Structure formats: structure tokens, C-alpha cells
Simulated assay, not measured.
Amino acid sequence: MESGLNFIDLILEASILVQLVMLTLVGMSVASWAIIFQRRSILAQSLADAKKFEQKFWSGMDLGKLYNEITARAGSSSGLEALFVSGFKEFARHKKQNTGSASMIIEGTHRSMRVALSREVEKVESGLSFLATVGSISPYIGLFGTVWGIMNAFIALGEVKQATLQMVAPGIAEALIATAMGLFAAIPAVMAYNRFAKNVEKLESNYINFMEEFANILHRQAASLTEAKQNVSA
């Protein structure tokens, strides 16, 4: 009886289909945990980088100097730095060409930053859809394995004249393991998804607020340039 209900033995003696279900759930669980650790590190770093950049941005540092400092580094910028570089580069291009009114300049700058915002949010959201999928379908995959295992157990039970609990228990136990594995894969994935989605929402809110504040600063500069140009023309 003890050897018949041993956890490892139950898995090894399960039907091929139930073993495939268990293997699938283990693979999904491992993949989701890898994404959980990766996303946790990336989101924490993104929030820290955003806070650090905002402190530098609002310290009164010259925007041109800040732009040159960021673009001089090796590698591409990310987060708020990417929004700033995108917006300032577009603003500098319009200012150099001396084209359009202040509203037209800011419209082009704002559009450039929105594209950068979309890319940055897409980066931090990467992998979250997989966690949501694991959290949604893992219990059903486990339940499928359970139903199949119990069905086979009762079919085998029907082939004997005298049925006992000892005969059916291993089959039912191996089937229930599939459900347990499905929950084991789903619960951490759902919890991680909810937490990460909240962090992404917070990060996106920070990005949008910065983008609007930076656009206001550039709008004042563009308006001053336009006014100065009109005064010279007059």
C-alpha cells in the first residue's frame, strides 16, 4: 500500500497522457518562474532608474548637456531617458531647421515621445502575457489530466469482479496530482502577474507625467524662440 501511494511511483506509473500533462505543467511552471525572476529584476531596475533620472532632470541641469551626456554613453537609452532623448532630439531638429510655429514643433515632439513611450511600455510588459496565460489555463490542463486518470481508474475497476479501494486509490491519486500541479503552476503566475501589472501601470503613469511636464518645458522654450524670431522680423 505504501509503495503504491508513493508520490514518485504514482507519477512514473501514470498513463502516458497524464505524464504528458504533468510534464507540460512542470515546463510551464519553470518558464513562469524564470519570467517572474526576470521581470521582478527588470521592473525594480526600471523604477529605480526612473527615480534617479527625474532627480537629475529636475536638478536644474542644462537640458542640452543632459542630452549629450546620455547620448555619449555606449548602448541605447531606456525608460525616461529614452523619452527625453526622443523628445529633445525632435525638438532640436525643428529648432535647427527653424520650421513651424511653437504648436507645430511641440506636436512633432510630443508625437515622437509617444512612440518612445509605446516602445518602453512594451519592453516592461514583455512576458506578462505568458504569466496570464499560465495562470488561466494551467488549472484546466491539470483538470484534464485528472479527468483522464479517474476515467482510466474506473474503467480498470469495471474489469474486475471484486473492487476494492486499494485497487482504485493509486489511479485516483495519480489523477489528483495533475490537478495539484496545475494549481502549483497557476497560483504563482497569477500573483506575479497582478503585482507586475500594477508596477507596469505605475511606471507607465510616471512616464506619461514626465512626458507631459517635459512637453510643457519645451513648449515654453519654443514659444520664446518664436516670439524672438517675430521681434527680429519686426
Rank of each mutant, 00 (worst) to 15 (best):
50 A>G: 12
53 F>W: 15
133 T>I: 04
106 I>A: 10
225 L>N: 11
43 L>R: 03
227 E>G: 07
52 K>F: 15
193 Y>W: 14
143 L>K: 04
210 F>D: 02
54 E>I: 00
162 Q>S: 14
87 G>S: 05
140 Y>S: 11
31 A>R: 07
14 A>S: 09
51 K>T: 12
160 V>E: 13
223 A>K: 02
164 T>D: 12
227 E>F: 15
177 I>K: 03
229 K>C: 11
30 V>R: 13
65 K>T: 08
152 N>A: 00
3 S>W: 11
17 L>Y: 15
216 N>T: 13
231 N>E: 09
13 E>L: 09
192 A>K: 01
229 K>Q: 07
149 G>T: 12
117 L>S: 07
92 A>R: 02
159 E>F: 15
202 K>P: 15
181 M>Y: 03
192 A>P: 01
51 K>Q: 10
48 A>V: 01
31 A>N: 07
217 I>R: 04
158 G>H: 11
215 A>D: 02
61 M>A: 06
191 M>C: 00
40 R>M: 02
170 P>I: 05
53 F>S: 02
48 A>M: 14
31 A>I: 06
56 K>V: 09
115 V>I: 09
168 V>K: 12
17 L>T: 01
134 V>E: 00
153 A>W: 13
6 N>M: 11
55 Q>K: 08
103 S>W: 03
103 S>C: 14
3 S>T: 11
65 K>C: 05
84 F>T: 11
88 F>I: 03
66 L>Y: 08
51 K>G: 13
192 A>D: 00
14 A>N: 15
216 N>L: 07
145 G>L: 01
184 F>R: 05
210 F>N: 00
115 V>E: 13
154 F>A: 10
165 L>D: 07
110 H>P: 01
213 E>C: 04
65 K>D: 04
56 K>D: 04
97 Q>T: 11
140 Y>G: 10
83 L>F: 00
173 A>R: 03
10 L>D: 01
7 F>C: 15
71 T>E: 04
181 M>E: 01
120 E>S: 00
202 K>D: 10
19 Q>N: 11
59 S>C: 00
171 G>Y: 08
64 G>T: 01
162 Q>H: 15
161 K>R: 12
101 S>G: 01
183 L>C: 03
